[in-house]
């Protein structure tokens, strides 16, 4: 892959900042009781994965997402206003307040949806890839999944089907090592041996440092290009870390505060990339500050929009059940 353009570098930096600001704002609204609806799962710490993968895709490629899916959507090009409005169960949300944080979809930007049932979105991306292959397009599908989802049978069924039918799928594993409170190495036998798992299933394997957006973007780009050109499915193994609790305000009795602090200090994907960009000489501190300011403004605007926009009309409750 060729080196990313300066413009792409700026997009990466901006997108990671956007995800972080969005997540922090959602958590803040949750803590303040404004977003009282159940469960907001922050992807802070994992921004480089969503960004690196999302920005390696075309607008018409597909993703499927998880309960921790705000970042996936933002990186795929979702409108922060409509995403935030969906979190607040408003009519202007992508799903008109029916879905919410864990069940948001944005078909117009290639999101097949977030699926709150762990692993559930994975086969759906496989099916979309099947459709694209049968239709003769060159669109690729990328299901995001956590390492905890490797416990679900249907995820393994997805690996198998994508492989035996040579479908254009790139399985993007966000390997943050934990699922709610349980360490993945204690509940997923091959959690740290995904290369062997991929090999057994006949998936091309790409293992990267998920805190390094350039590495993710590069590997995802190669995996996607191969899938697009008919070379079959791949598994993109991104080692990452969840900086926050499982959901906003979750107490985290299962890991030490020092561990989290240490990871925040040494493994922050945004800080890493910032250092790289400054070092490259392509960006000044002022350039980067401007990008961060812009994402902060966009998120403020989205939050304001969402809070002031109307609820769905209750009389429409039976809409969309059938086509």
């Amino acid at each position: 892959m060729s080196d990313p353009s300066t413009e792409m570098l700026a997009r990466m930096y901006y997108t990671m900042g956007l995800i972080r600001d969005f997540e922090n704002k959602a958590a803040e609204l949750f803590t303040r009781g404004i977003l009282a609806k159940g469960g907001v799962h922050s992807s802070v710490g994992q921004e480089a994965v969503a960004t690196g993968v999302g920005l390696s895709l075309r607008g018409d490629d597909w993703i499927s997402s998880t309960h921790r899916g705000h970042g996936h959507h933002l990186a795929k090009g979702a409108d922060p206003r409509r995403l935030m409005a969906e979190l607040l169960a408003k009519d202007a949300g992508y799903c008109r307040g029916r879905g919410g944080s864990m069940h948001v979809a944005a078909f117009e930007i290639g999101s097949l949806g977030a699926y709150a049932m762990v692993g559930e979105g994975v086969p759906i991306a496989v099916g979309a890839a099947l459709a694209e292959k049968m239709k003769g397009t060159d669109r690729v599908a990328v299901p995001f999944l956590g390492d905890g989802a490797l416990g679900q049978g249907v995820v393994h069924e997805s690996f198998n089907l994508a492989s035996v039918w040579r479908l254009p799928v790139v399985f993007a594993v966000e390997r943050n090592g934990i699922a709610v409170s349980t360490r993945c190495d204690q509940m997923v036998a091959p959690s740290t041996r995904l290369a062997e798992l991929a090999q057994a299933y006949g998936l091309r394997y790409y293992g990267v440092d998920g805190q390094d957006v350039l590495a993710v973007h590069d590997a995802a780009g190669r995996a996607v290009a191969a899938a697009r050109s008919g070379q079959g499915p791949a598994l993109l193994d991104c080692r990452t870390y969840r900086f926050e609790g499982h959901y906003a305000s979750e107490p985290q009795v299962y890991r030490r505060r020092e561990e989290i602090d240490e990871m925040r200090r040494t493994q922050d994907p945004i800080a890493h990339f910032e250092a790289y960009l400054l070092d490259s000489g392509l960006f000044s501190t002022a350039d980067l500050e401007a990008l961060r300011r812009r994402s902060a403004e966009v998120v403020e605007d989205a939050a304001e929009f969402a809070q002031t926009s109307p609820e769905p009309d209750p009389s429409t409750y039976a809409e969309y059940v059938y086509a």
Binding site: A89, G100, P312, Y317
Partner: peptide, 11 residues
């Protein structure tokens, strides 16, 4: 009603 449970409270 024969409708999935919506996220929005009013619905």
């Amino acid at each position: 009603h024969d409708v999935p449970i919506p996220y929005n409270d009013g619905l």
